[in-house]
Simulated assay, not measured.
Amino acid sequence: MDAEGGEPGMVRPGGRTARVRDAVLRAAGDALAEHGFGGLDLADVARRAEVGKTTVYRRWSTPAGLVADLLAYMADQSVPRTDLGSLDQDLAANARLVVRTLTDPRQGALFTSVIAAATCDTRTAKALHRFYEVRVKEWAGCVEAAVERGELPAGTDASEVIRAVSAPLYYRLLTGGGALDEAAADRAAEAAAVAARAGVYVS
């Protein structure tokens, strides 16, 4: 559990408990990608993970609790940011990573399902927000470094720049508004970089 008290199952266990958690969360991700949040069934997840139903019900209790822990797990396992030494290259790397994730058959379907669930389930929404807070904070470091190098104005809101990179890519995912490819990634990164240099994101 985190210090503030969170979702069932949100722990950082070790040994066999960690292996069970890994298996259950991988199974939950597979189930979400296949059936969406509405089709997420704890008994089915237990079967896929080859663990007892009692274990799953006791530790996670609800689909929302399971998804919350899955998002925490995904944040922990996410690829660290790239540090290529220039704002343009770093933002392009971030955008391309987002595109690779969202176009992956499993990961793209998983994120679509979780985002949809977050619109109608408060606990899932909170867990999704925590996930993106972790990822934005990770990548904000490349923008902060650009400010220190003099590439961007002092006072630039690093988190807002990173959000600006991802926003058009998620819009394409959720609306089907055009190809979600490297060209789209590069355009999103370039637009965010141009706006940041112009001082759009200065607090």
Rank of each mutant, 00 (worst) to 15 (best):
R48K: 14
D44W: 02
L42M: 07
T54Q: 15
D76P: 07
V67H: 11
D76E: 11
S78D: 13
V45M: 05
R47S: 15
L40W: 04
K53N: 15
L70A: 14
V56G: 01
R59W: 11
D41H: 12
L42P: 01
V56C: 00
S78A: 15
G52W: 09
A68T: 03
V79C: 08
A72C: 08
A64H: 04
A43R: 09
V51W: 01
R59T: 12
E50T: 15
Y73P: 02
D44Q: 03
P80D: 10
G52C: 03
G65F: 09
G65K: 05
L40S: 02
E50N: 09
P80V: 13
V56E: 00
E50Y: 06
R47T: 14
T55D: 02
E50P: 07
D41P: 08
V67P: 12
V45C: 10
L66Q: 00
T54A: 11
M74G: 08
T54K: 06
D41M: 07
T55Q: 02
M74Y: 11
A72N: 05
P80H: 15
L42V: 12
D44F: 00
V45W: 05
L71Y: 06
R58F: 08
D44Y: 04
A43G: 10
D41V: 12
V67C: 06
Y73M: 06
T54F: 05
S61N: 14
A43P: 02
V79M: 05
P63D: 13
L66D: 01
T55W: 00
L40A: 14
W60R: 01
V56D: 00
V51K: 00
D41K: 05
W60Q: 06
V51E: 05
A49L: 03
V79Q: 10
A49V: 02
K53L: 11
L70W: 04
L66C: 01
V79P: 10
W60C: 01
S78W: 10
R48Y: 05
A72R: 06
A75M: 07
A64F: 03
L66N: 00
Y57A: 07
K53I: 09
V67F: 06
S61T: 15
R58W: 08
T62S: 11
D76M: 08
D69M: 07
R59K: 11
S61V: 08
T55Y: 04
D76V: 12
